[in-house]
Design a protein around this nucleic acid. Structure first.
Lengths: 169, 169
DNA sequence: CCTGAAAAATTATTCGC
DNA sequence: GCGAATAATTTTTCAGG
């Protein structure tokens, strides 16, 4: 079969910051760029035979370094290019309130990212939507009704300069 | 073969916001959760035979909706859990300056995300690093030397509540 | 811990309906 | 779009260094 999707270019230089075995690191770099590469090709690319590469791969998966394999989609083609960051301040930052908030946030499909932040506000959400109208709807119906919110500030993204995607929680 | 990686759970409700054919949407949902599912299984999951599913898949790939397939890694296991958002203000926001800045940002592996923002500041960067020391090094050596910067503010993430990953530029 | 080749299993493609 | 037959690819195993 000739795979009809080009290998995604991934800026994987970050892996150099890691204390992995160099061959494991190379395996990860290749797999992050092309999750469907056959073992045969992968082995050739790292300069070993299939047996040790299969072992290494299995170890990387079972140790949880590789958490899965995903298709990567084009937001442009899906009509989901509108990105907004929402900063949220909380009225209650005790553990129970935060956990309640976290659980509620995780139910909103438009939330692509949510971090608790140290500093001026409490949470930062990245919202992906079709357009401004869709974003406003998400804000009105899902975000502003989250528990313990006191205020929000929204910042609309005008251009995506870098969007990297190889991490999982 | 028993694949030893569990299918990643992906909150793919966002695809409902899309005007795709329901079967194509289902195919995407499955592939975003498990890029390595065999055609046979995929066909069974969507309730069609292999032939039409192979055609649909090819169409989704060739139309650019699916841009690639990636392994997803654990930042925790890699020791890359330190996330910081950096807001940047620019001294020059003319097109040429912005393009120069964009090109320079794309060379920094620790930059996981970079958007041009409408509002109080000009860019927001998401930096992934090993720890605070590593982050400070990135700031000192890579970020603060970017062209046309006037000021930066950094916000450290204390907890990852949602990290979604299915998009590509 | 790695090699190389044989064997086994799985997966994709084709084609008539 | 279906299903079976065919073809191709891929993974696993194993003897040997």
């Amino acid at each position: 079969m000739g795979r009809s999707v080009a290998r995604t270019t991934v800026r994987s230089g970050i892996f150099r910051m890691t204390q992995l075995d160099p061959i494991d690191r190379r395996i990860l770099e290749i797999l992050v760029a092309d999750a469907r590469i056959p073992l045969t090709e992968l082995a050739r690319a790292v300069g070993l035979s299939k047996t040790p590469v299969a072992q290494r791969l299995k170890r990387l998966e079972e140790s949880g370094i590789i958490t899965g394999y995903r298709a990567i989609l084009s937001p442009l083609k899906l009509g989901l290019t509108h990105v907004t960051y929402v900063e949220i301040s909380m009225s209650d930052t005790r553990q129970k309130a935060l956990e309640e908030f976290n659980a509620a946030v995780r139910l909103i499909p438009e939330v692509e990212e949510c971090y608790m932040i140290a500093g001026g506000y409490d949470y930062q959400l990245k919202i992906r939507s079709r357009d401004m109208a869709h974003f406003r709807q998400v804000m009105a119906e899902r975000i502003s009704t989250l528990p313990y919110i006191t205020s929000t500030s929204s910042y609309v993204a005008m251009e995506a300069v870098v969007e990297q995607n190889w991490t999982a929680i």
